[in-house]
Measured scan of single mutants.
Amino acid sequence: QNEKLANELKSLLDELNVNELATGSLNTYYKRTIKISGQKAMYALKSKDFKKMSEAKYQLQKIYNEIDEA
């Protein structure tokens, strides 16, 4: 289960640069939040902690959705 979550989180991290570029014309909230979420996700992957990875995955998905809707 950890392996599956780690792969999903890696996949979301692969999209980080594209989504970060998409924040160029948006409010600074999005820029700041996506950077923080990305850092948390990288830390969670290194720690291999299921709870941290779950939270990081949720945060990344949430900010990606917010950027898409903005």
Rank of each mutant, 00 (worst) to 15 (best):
K62G: 03
Q61E: 10
S37C: 15
Y64S: 04
E8Q: 08
I34E: 02
D68I: 15
D14V: 06
I63V: 06
T33A: 15
Y30N: 03
E8P: 00
N7K: 13
D14C: 12
E15M: 15
S54Q: 14
F50R: 04
N17V: 13
Y58C: 11
L60M: 03
E15N: 11
D14W: 07
S47H: 06
T23M: 07
K40E: 06
E15T: 08
K48H: 07
D14F: 07
A22S: 04
G24Q: 15
F50L: 06
Y64H: 04
L9I: 05
L45N: 00
L45P: 00
A70E: 05
K57C: 10
S47V: 08
L26T: 03
E8C: 13
L5P: 01
L9K: 00
Q39E: 11
N27W: 05
G24S: 13
Y58V: 10
D68P: 03
A70D: 03
S54A: 12
N65S: 11
L13G: 00
Y58H: 10
L21E: 08
R32N: 12
G24D: 12
L26V: 03
N7R: 13
Y64R: 07
K40I: 11
E55N: 06
N17D: 11
L9T: 00
E66D: 05
E15G: 06
K40M: 13
Y58R: 10
E66T: 04
Y43H: 09
K51M: 09
T33F: 09
L21I: 12
Q59C: 14
N2L: 15
S11Q: 13
K62L: 06
T23I: 07
L21G: 07
K57F: 11
Q39K: 09
Y30C: 07
L12M: 09
Y29R: 05
Q61H: 05
L26M: 09
M42D: 05
E20T: 14
V18N: 11
Q59P: 00
M42E: 08
S54T: 13
E55G: 04
N17H: 14
M53N: 03
A70F: 08
T28L: 13
A70Y: 09
K62D: 03
M42Y: 12
K46L: 13
E55V: 09
K10L: 10
A70P: 03
L9Q: 00
N19S: 08
R32I: 14
L13A: 01
N19P: 04
N2I: 15
D68N: 14
L21M: 09
Y30D: 02
D49K: 03
I67L: 04
Q61Y: 04
M42R: 13
E66S: 05
T33G: 07
Q59L: 14
A56C: 04
L16M: 05
F50Y: 12
N27V: 05
Q61K: 07
K4S: 08
I34R: 00
K31N: 04
I34M: 05
L26A: 04
E20N: 08
K35P: 01
E15Q: 15
K35A: 08
I63D: 02
Y58G: 06
L9W: 02
S37V: 15
L9D: 00
K52C: 10
N2C: 14
M53F: 01
Y58F: 11
L26N: 04
Q59N: 09
A41I: 02
V18F: 11
K4W: 08
L26Q: 03
K31Q: 13
S47T: 13
D14H: 07
V18C: 13
L13R: 00
Y29C: 11
E66R: 06
K10P: 01
T33C: 15
Q59G: 05
K10Q: 10
G24K: 14
K4G: 06
N7G: 09
S47M: 10
D49G: 02
Y43G: 07
I67V: 03
